[in-house]
Simulated scan of single mutants.
Amino acid sequence: MKKILTGAVAAIALVGIASPAAAQTNQRHYAGTAPIPYTITNPQPIPFFGNVGLVAGELGVALQVGTRYTAVADAPSDSETATPTVNVAFNLSGTVNKDCSFYAGNNSNATNIDFGVIGVRTGNNENVNNAFEMVGPAFANIETLTAGCNFNNEVKIAKNDAAGLVNQTASGYDTNQFQNNIPYTVSAAWTGVAFNAVTAGTPQSLTVGANSLDGTLQQGAWRSAMTIDFNAPAVTSKGLVAGNYTGTTTLTLKAL
């Protein structure tokens, strides 16, 4: 063995493997010359007295007829089970508040709709059955370019009186020949979708009839221009009592 090691260079390579886990070095080698040349490689370490190779190798060393080489390496294992692939999910969140919008001008005067003089037949040459009746229908149109809600919502139109425009100060009159109210219809039109629908918008409308108090329509989220038409057909069955005719119509857009 001495002749074999003469001039030999032993290069020791240190290797560390982070992942996956590998067996750590535990080498034991014996070689000797007596009574005949021998080598013993990695004899099983236990049990000692039942392991012939281990006993023989150690005996050769003790009798100074053999040699021994050992290499033992140890390092602590990973602190946790190694994970070659890591997935991290980032949950992003935020809140959009429910809102409904309707541009109704820049001041309260913009929503005061005045028909002016509602003409009646005042000629003294009118037949008695036509006297004091409305000359023609009264009409008003409102258009806003900004209206809508960003969630399921309800569009509601409500009059304050189903009778329409009412002369609250009318004095005595013959109810067979006169009346103190002017019925009117209200119609709103816009582009939207049905309640809970996820689809392209189409023309939508809501009408409250001449003798109705209110009406509602549920919608999905929408935004568009909206028109509102007021139409009071000419009252021709009776004459109108003189005075001021007033009424209030309320449009409500309500997110649900």
Rank of each mutant, 00 (worst) to 15 (best):
K156S: 12
E133Y: 05
N130I: 03
T169Q: 14
Q168N: 15
I157W: 04
T144Y: 03
A163M: 06
G172C: 07
L165A: 03
I142T: 07
N181I: 02
N160R: 07
G148V: 01
V120H: 04
N180E: 10
E154T: 14
V120R: 06
N127S: 13
E143V: 15
G123L: 11
M134K: 11
G123D: 12
G119D: 10
Y173E: 07
N130F: 14
G136I: 07
Q177R: 11
D174V: 09
F132G: 00
N176E: 11
N125T: 13
G136T: 13
K156W: 00
A170I: 03
A138S: 13
V135G: 04
N160C: 08
N125M: 10
L145D: 04
F132V: 06
N167S: 13
G123C: 05
P137I: 06
G136F: 09
N152K: 10
S171I: 06
A163C: 00
R121P: 00
N127E: 07
E143R: 15
A138N: 05
N150Y: 09
I157A: 05
D174M: 04
V166R: 11
G164L: 04
Q168R: 12
I142A: 07
N124I: 14
N129C: 00
F132L: 11
M134Q: 13
E133Q: 15
V166K: 06
D174L: 06
T169V: 04
K159D: 02
D174F: 06
Q177M: 07
A163H: 06
E133A: 14
K159T: 03
K159M: 05
I142N: 09
N180S: 15
V166I: 10
I118P: 00
G148Q: 05
V120S: 06
T122M: 11
K159Y: 02
A170T: 01
E154R: 15
N176W: 01
S171P: 13
P137E: 10
N176R: 13
I118K: 00
Y173D: 01
A147S: 15
F178N: 09
E154M: 13
E126V: 12
I157Q: 06
N153T: 07
N127V: 13
N176Y: 00
F178W: 01
V166L: 09
N180A: 12
M134H: 07
G116Y: 12
V155E: 02
G148K: 03
N180I: 01
N153I: 01
G172L: 12
C149L: 12
N180C: 03
I157T: 04
V117C: 02
N127A: 15
A131D: 00
N150F: 12
A147F: 02
I157K: 03
N150E: 04
N181T: 12
F139G: 05
D161M: 02
G164F: 05
Q177I: 04
Q168T: 11
S171W: 03
V166P: 02
A170Q: 05
C149R: 01
D174N: 15
N167F: 12
